[in-house]
Design a protein around this nucleic acid. Structure first.
Lengths: 345, 345
DNA sequence: CAGGCCTACGAAAACGGTTTCGTGTTAATA
DNA sequence: TATTAACACGAAACCGTTTTCGTAGGCCTG
């Protein structure tokens, strides 16, 4: 087992000082050609690589960024992560991921742990619990220490920092307008039980679209499902579809949409003729469902790239003096991908 | 902006030495009750937290583990990651994730970067390219330096380290046997284009099952699809089903299975009556497909937990002396989850 | 009253680097 | 020949901890 070699080893072996070795490896002008060659050859031979931790301590820069997300077994978050990781890596940064599991406490603990020097900045989407509690002190503490923070998708107005979003409300409005264009009369809103930030925005887009046409909002057309993947009971959905004579459904995620499509099909309804569906999140489910699902693509990867870019720029702009920082919110345009669950054209 | 406070600050402020502060915060017997109280109060007031990087340097332990996986937007890998992250976090470790993107070079670069002190050990699944190249020098270099490594799922016999696997071959055999039990005569094997390690094992399980019944292997019943999610051409699959009069298909992943099911349905075949399907990976696709897909659950999360446990145990057992290490390979039993794409009972 | 022993603390080394500054040697210049 | 500048290198500080060891002062004991 050949242990890692350090500057000290090289110095001792070559009978020069540590500083000389350090400079020689950096090709400093100060060092003679002879010495440089000798040192570099030796370093190469023994595969010397500087210790990242020591460099971090010296530079007060870890080249790590912390990503805290509510879930990882989740298509949208993984795509965002993909974007972050790709951009960060290309810029020489590593990514430490923590999953808050939608829990406020875990979010706080992870954040505090990483904030003690482990990362140069944070990218995160708030946990459901945090949004419910409306408690953002852990975020404030971090930003007050001068650690950059970028929030994406699940953001909070109360937190002052850079943000990356999609135009949830507007794209929802467009989606519902599309259904209205096709002559749909009774469009259901299939949403989550307790309003998450984003579901809320999507619901407002749904309302906007109805208002655009001066259509009254019918509370009976709104159904709330528990925010869990499996075990959704089909009975209430079927009852809902029958009772309300629903002819289209706008769903706040793809799982709800696919699930509802199945219920409709079991009822003997034809998709998209009798009933159309639009979902949110362009994951594999949407692509492989039958019929394939018309859905809103959130461009998660792009979102991740932008978040990483914003963060790294903040990290690298030496913000020594306490000039007032100006934070920005970047809005990414979502796109409606039309497939077979709606009438095309 | 209140910067992080250090021992030095506390020492200066309280007019004691740094060592005293350090000891006082650790409640050392050496320090008088008075001083301890004073220091601890001050530290609490200013929210002192030791700097992780300095501690890492001192301890030669980062409490970070590196995870290198081929893909992240992928159900199985995220579930494994979930298990790793959960176990590691509970043990006070953070997880740095790098995505190799199935590329040998990226795998090597990331690994070398992290090996220079950033992590205490690695958990990884080999990239496709690495398996094809059969080049594992980057892994050997790391293990030779005494950095623990655990491989999962996509492993290589050439690498000497701890491993976590599922019984791919055996479960595939069981799955195909189940189809045979149900009287299926022409069972297709739907696999990947260039044999990945795991696909290979699954294929061998398929062969095993046929051999169990002394059934000849019909090469015509094997179809290879490109390892990509989308844009799979339906025509060759349809032609294949028709020509070979396939009455069941064993697919090496769930995407292939769902895609093939759709083709079969479009051909007017009834599932599972006319044709049955079994897939691999129990993701949302399997759960939401129609009909729901009978599939092999790989228990990714459990795999991740075990991998993390193995790694952390290695990391924490001071392996000072160079006693011969004994590595173990842990095999997790996969389970066949029966749903509607096969005949039940 | 000298010697020994606690008590309570500080100095310093160590982890592995980077960087500033000082200095001995040589060669060029006045 | 004395001064000076360039060259090549080393000492030491620093990043923020932990930990070993040394010691000043007080008290007890013989």
């Amino acid at each position: 087992m050949k242990r890692k070699i350090t500057l000290k080893h090289i110095a001792r072996e070559l009978e020069v000082s540590i500083s000389t070795v350090s400079k020689a490896l950096k090709n400093s002008e100060e060092i003679s050609r002879d010495t440089k060659e000798k040192v570099q050859a030796f370093a190469k031979l023994y595969n010397y690589k500087p210790n990242n931790v020591a460099i971090s301590l010296k530079n007060k820069r870890t080249k790590n960024i912390g990503v805290i997300i509510p879930e990882i077994v989740h298509h949208f978050f993984t795509t965002v992560f993909r974007g972050i990781e790709q951009y960060a890596n290309q810029k020489g940064y590593n990514v430490i991921v923590c999953v808050s599991d939608e829990s406020f406490d875990k979010e706080v603990i992870n954040m505090e742990l990483l904030a003690n020097g482990s990362v140069d900045g944070f990218i995160m989407a708030l946990s459901a619990e945090t949004q419910l509690k409306n408690d953002y002190n852990h975020l404030k503490e971090v930003t007050e220490q001068g650690i950059p923070l970028v929030l994406f998708d699940r953001v909070a107005d109360e937190v002052v920092c850079d943000k990356v979003l999609i135009n949830d409300r507007e794209i929802a409005r467009q989606a519902v307008n599309k259904l209205l264009d096709q002559g749909r009369k009774r469009i259901a809103l299939v949403t989550t039980d307790n309003y998450l930030n984003v579901s809320n925005k999507r619901a407002r887009g749904y309302f906007d679209a109805l208002e655009d046409r001066n259509r009254a909002i019918d509370e009976n057309l709104i159904i709330k499902l528990p925010y869990t993947y499996l075990g959704m009971d089909k009975v209430p959905i079927q009852a809902f579809f029958e009772k309300e004579a629903v002819d289209a459904a706008f769903c706040v995620n793809e799982m709800f949409a696919v699930h509802c499509m199945r219920v409709a099909q079991d009822m003997g309804l034809k998709i998209p003729e009798d009933i159309s569906f639009i979902g949110f999140t362009d994951g594999i489910l949407s692509q492989y469902a039958s019929p394939t699902l018309t859905t809103v693509a959130q461009h998660g990867q792009q979102m991740g790239e932008i978040a990483a870019k914003m963060l790294i720029e903040r990290v690298e702009q030496e913000n020594d003096d306490d000039e007032e920082e100006v934070f920005q919110t970047k809005v990414i345009e979502a796109t409606l991908i039309e497939r077979d669950s709606t009438i095309n054209g």
